[in-house]
């Protein structure tokens, strides 16, 4: 089991870097969808005897449907609907953002050496993988101009938080887990609606044009 978990986590980190480097929005959305689908394997792989099997299955299925299918599908639909074809248009170039991502990876792995897990017997790779993914998401949100790319960065950030949440899946009550998925969905849904309005108002989804409000 351990090797399978490690494989998934390494793949998740690699996908972070792929998203950071990808210039095509559609490709980036598919990459994030793949990452979400991979993440949905983790609850099952990490399950210990202490958790109700039904609960674990529902969590995995929920993650697969929401992170792997529904939200990426919604975003692809939004792109078709708003006729966006252009590149990801970063503020910071692809190579620098990739380097920042790599630097974050190094920092996350060395940091997680200092953060000792209170409950032993957990997967050691979980913490650095979660931190790298969260960092990659933050980078994407901050360094991209297109609204779609920013929302994508938010999804990657949420993926990182999801990985981290698995560490405490047995401590956290069900309600919070459900709230996480629901809120994620709601956030993107509202963002999607807003994006359509941005499209109508500015005939572009370029947040770089949102510059009327300044000091």
């Amino acid at each position: 089991m351990t090797s399978a978990i490690d494989l998934v986590l390494v793949l998740v980190v690699v996908l972070d870097l792929v998203v950071l480097a990808s210039s095509r929005l559609r490709g980036a959305i598919r990459t994030v969808a793949l990452q979400g689908a991979l993440l949905s394997l983790l609850p099952v792989l990490l399950a210990t005897g202490g958790q109700a099997p039904l609960h674990v299955l529902l969590l995995a299925l929920g993650a697969l449907v929401v992170k792997g299918v529904a939200i990426p599908g919604l975003m692809l639909w939004a792109m078709r609907e708003a006729a966006i074809r252009r590149e990801a248009e970063p503020i910071v170039g692809f190579v620098p953002s990739l380097l920042l991502g790599a630097a974050g990876t190094v920092v996350a792995f060395s940091l997680s050496g200092a953060l000792v897990l209170p409950a032993p017997g957990r997967q050691a790779l979980l913490v650095p993988a979660a931190l790298v993914t969260a960092w990659a998401g933050l980078l994407l949100v901050m360094t991209r101009r297109k609204a779609v790319a920013q929302v994508l960065g938010f999804l990657v950030l949420e993926n990182g938080i999801f990985v981290f949440g698995l560490l405490i899946a047995d401590v956290m009550p069900v309600m919070v887990e459900a709230g996480v998925l629901l809120d994620l969905f709601a956030a993107v849904f509202v963002m999607g609606i807003v994006m359509f309005h941005i499209n109508r108002e500015f005939s572009s989804l370029d947040t770089g044009r949102l510059t009327h409000l300044q000091d």
């Binding site: 949100v141 807003v194 108002e201 949102l210």
Partner: peptide, 17 residues
């Protein structure tokens, strides 16, 4: 107001995350 709502949502959701 749309620009304000977008910025509010984007920054707010990062904080919430």
């Amino acid at each position: 107001s749309l620009e304000a709502a977008w910025k509010y949502l984007m920054v707010g959701s990062l904080g919430i995350a």
